[in-house]
């Protein structure tokens, strides 16, 4: 974590963006005196290492600092955006997991048949599509041509926040969530397919067949049991990619989540906000991997003994 924070900090220092210029925007009336005053106010006149240590010691006391562009404490912004992002990522995560698993199992059972080749083909295409391009495509088709879904943001425009219904929020969530899940589906599909094929060629499946179990019984009794574990583990470990994907998807749909805020913070040189989000996402990815490990240990009887 510390290594990550140092790295992000150094990268920000090297970035060509002048936080003050970004902050004032195009306002050219800024006098050099005002500029110096701002620099002093933000502590930008002090050496980088001192800035970092101040930030770190504040962080250890639970203080993430105040965002420069939003003029609000970083914690507050993250809390607000995280809810939106969590909804987006949670839905895509579940969707891609469930759909991917079903497709993967189906493909493996029909291995070599037309259906399998079709699913494989879809998965390869999905895996090679860039997120932002897919997002734009969906926007063009569903929002511009068909007008089924709104173009962006998480709530309707011109409506006060108290009037926003759950339906409105869901309606705005569909396209970003779809974009994000489509990428995950390919990942899960291909891994599940591979694992299922391996399981289906094992001796205990041959024996199950010899005992008169039908294909469906074999899948139900032995297949899912032996494939679910690696699939779930993999899917939790996929948290990291999911976060990366959400940055792009949120940007394309101007969805106000952590991802688009992060981009914003980066472009405007908002150091406290950027560092805050980076730290939170690192915790998030780390949590995903840890959950995967713990889950594996608690579900898999062969590992349970050791825990």
């Amino acid at each position: 974590m510390i290594g990550l924070s140092i790295l992000s900090f150094i990268m920000l220092q090297c970035s060509p963006i002048d936080p003050i210029a970004a902050y004032v925007g195009g306002d050219t009336s800024l006098t050099p005196e005002q500029r110096l005053a701002l620099e002093e106010y933000w502590g930008l006149d002090r050496p980088a290492s001192e800035q970092y240590l101040t930030w770190l010691s504040n962080l250890l006391r639970g203080d993430f600092g105040v965002s420069k562009i939003h003029r609000k404490p970083v914690v507050e912004i993250i809390k607000e955006k995280a809810v939106a992002s969590a909804a987006l990522m949670g839905i895509s995560w579940l969707l891609s997991g469930v759909i991917g698993f079903i497709l993967g199992v189906t493909a493996a059972v029909k291995k070599g048949k037309v259906l399998d080749r079709f699913i494989k083909w879809i998965a390869y295409v999905q895996a090679s599509i860039p997120t932002f391009w897919l997002g734009l495509l969906l926007l063009i088709i569903f929002s511009v041509w068909l007008r089924w879904f709104p173009i962006g943001i998480s709530v309707p425009i011109g409506v006060t926040s108290s009037e926003v219904t759950l339906w409105d929020r869901l309606h705005h969530l569909v396209l970003p969530a779809l974009t994000l899940s489509i990428l995950g589906i390919a990942n899960v599909t291909l891994h599940t397919r591979e694992k299922m094929i391996e399981v289906l060629s094992s001796e205990y499946i041959i024996f199950a067949k010899a005992r008169g179990e039908t294909t469906w019984q074999i899948i139900k009794n032995h297949g899912l049991r032996n494939v679910a574990l690696p699939a779930i583990t993999l899917h939790f470990a996929y948290f990291g990619e999911l976060f990366g994907g959400s940055v792009l998807a949120e940007q394309v749909f101007s969805y106000p989540g952590l991802g688009s805020t992060l981009t914003d913070a980066g472009l405007k040189g908002d150091l406290p906000l950027l560092m805050g989000i980076v730290m939170i996402s690192a915790v998030f990815v780390f949590a995903g991997n840890t959950i995967a490990d713990l889950l594996n240990a608690s579900i898999n009887p062969r590992l349970k003994e050791g825990v």
């Binding site: 205990y204 041959i206 024996f207 005992r211 008169g212 179990e213 009794n221 032996n226």
Partner: peptide, 28 residues
């Protein structure tokens, strides 16, 4: 298969590694 013809395989790898043995005996 499994109804009139039954098979005793040669290796214990023919059992499902993730299924309790009682449940495996109950199949069929």
């Amino acid at each position: 298969r499994g109804k009139e013809i039954s098979f005793i395989p040669q290796s214990v790898n023919y059992l499902d590694p993730l299924m309790r043995v009682a449940d495996q005996v109950k199949i069929g």
